[in-house]
Amino acid sequence: MSDATFAIVAAIAKILLVWAIALAALLPNLVWAERRGAGMIQDRPGPNRVGPFGLFQAVADVIKLFMKEDVTPLYVDRLLYNLAPWITMMPALVTFAVIPFGSTFPVTLGGVTRDVPLIIADVNIGILYIFAFASLGIYGIVLAGWSSNNKYSMMGGLRASAQIISYELSMGFAAAATFLVAGSLRLPAVVEWQQAHVWNVVPQFVGFLIFLIAVFAETNRLPFDLAEAEAELVAGFHTEYSAFKFGMFFMGEYANIIAASGLVVTLYFGGWSLPGIAFTGVWGAIASIAVFFAKTLVFIALFIWVRWTLPRFRYDQLMDLGWKVLLPLSFFHLIVVAAFVAAK
């Protein structure tokens, strides 16, 4: 097998592995975890009838969503109305490509051993690729709101666009500090730096907090789900969606949570590495994947925990927090980090 064929086969295998873990294994259980977590926090059982501990609730939900009548209201912009749920799914699916999810996996084929780095595409613009697709994902929500031909949906879409623009900047500046110390935009380089020195969360705790808050806003999760805001806007941007298309918005949200958690882990918590442990060989590679998975799960749990703990922000508070607190703070943080890097 030539190097080129091997690279293609390895890439396809990695894509399948990542999607299998993130979408087939994690995503359905996330719905279950969210609903059971909500029950736990609100002192009620939550869904517990379908299967042991209600584990098959997600299956039942999906079947229900498939079976329901798909209502398309009159006077919607049909093309955009149907396209919007797909646009919401897309960025989450492609973001996984540049997040390193393990060390290197040795493969011996025909007497030649090749080390396969466990990342789908190690591009030299790493984080910019993620930001590029994250900023495109917003179109799904905005278009859903606009094409529905409904005042409340429109308000939701408007809010979403303003919100994402406001928090994108702080997120970018916070993340930039981690790349400044690593000296590269490649995510594997960030992980290697943290492996060699210290997890970024320790020296850059402020940056971590900014990034985490901005990520909550970017994924449209409570306390920043102003685009949905069911108390004011019925259901915001997806008021007019039903059945499978509504389900796609849900899946998009959860896929985004998984991707965002993976990104937080990679940037601030050492990615797949653990201090003092070298992951080598086949078992090392598998262990490193497990480590990355476990760390990501912690942040997914945090997403759920926060959702059922904090109340929703008011719109003016959201804007104040984004522009008057997070943005100046992230500027300041970046300058301080840059000064330290320059002084070294």
Binding site: V123, L128, A132, S135, L136, Y139, W146, L158, I165
Partner: peptide, 22 residues
């Protein structure tokens, strides 16, 4: 020139045109 490509998407497609749409 992937860097230019990323900037193109982030700045134009992702930020400026979102404002247009807004």
């Amino acid at each position: 020139a992937p860097f230019i490509a990323a900037l193109q998407v982030i700045v134009y497609a992702g930020a400026i045109l979102v404002l247009f749409l807004f």
